[in-house]
Amino acid sequence: MPMRRRMAFTVLTFGGLAAAACLIAPLIGSTPLSLRRVFDGSVPFAENPDAQIFFVARLPRTLAAALVGASLAAAGVVFQALLRNPLATPFTLGVSAGAALGAMLAIIFPVGLAFAGVSSVPIASFAGALGAVAIVYALATVRRQGLSTTVLLLAGITLNAFFSSVILFIQYLADFTQTFRTVRWLMGDLDVGSYTPILAALPFMLVAFAAFSVLPRALNLLTLGADAAAARGVDVLRTQRLSFFSASLATGAAVSLGGPVGFIGIIVPHLVRLLVGSDHRIVLPAATLFGAAFLIACDTASRMVMAPMELPVGILTALIGGPFFLWLLLRRS
């Protein structure tokens, strides 16, 4: 099949899946919902619980799941290509640990700061993510020999460990309830409760996806090695920079919106490669759309299985992701 048709076919298939997930997820949940009452214009919105369950509780979290899933899956694809390492995840380079540190600080020292309806927790976690990105980038470029992916990887892993110990230290100083709440934050939560946090994260995600859209061809060549890519006319440093910053931005925005939901950034890319091969022109859009559909499905399950309690969505993705990943490892070896 020619490339163009393959791309169209992939986008239509996976896009259909994501669209179906977006349409079905708001219709199912822990409480019965009458669609007729949801769209009953004769009842004012303020007095219509069905409409509010649909528009305030379910629709925002479906959208949040779609955006977080798409961002993490796409960032996973880009990081795996950039680092030329199939085990890389959006969280490998310390972005999520930085975000977690920011969120911890906001939970334990609540300054009550909110900006345009977004509470201090997502703001602080996004700031933490940016801080981590800046540190890792500064370290990887300190020798002024371009962007060393080895240093990037080592700096990221070290920063992850360092931030994690700072997080443990802060948790140790906090009281019991706060510690519990910070641990719970790490499990991911897509019940955003309004559209404001989504609108706040969306611009950053859009910028990241605009960058992703020009990356696939260069990423294909980059996976052959930096020298091989350079020989074929790829501006290696520019591609690496663009990949690093866009994938980090998508990760930071996703984590500040939904918490560090694990395994999406690694299961989805691998699963999609199994289905469509390894050409990034196909993998990247497919993983983006499949990531959205997958996280919507996981979140729908997580809000239903233990209702009225929430099963943290990060636990569900890890429960599915862990065994899947082991299977993948065994299959490779």
């Binding site: 822990s30 369950i53 979290r61 719970r184 409760g193 809000r303 009225p308």
Partner: peptide
């Protein structure tokens, strides 16, 4: 302690 969703609160 129960972590509750906005949906659970609307339903309750």
């Amino acid at each position: 302690s129960v972590r509750v969703s906005t949906e659970a609160i609307l339903a309750a």
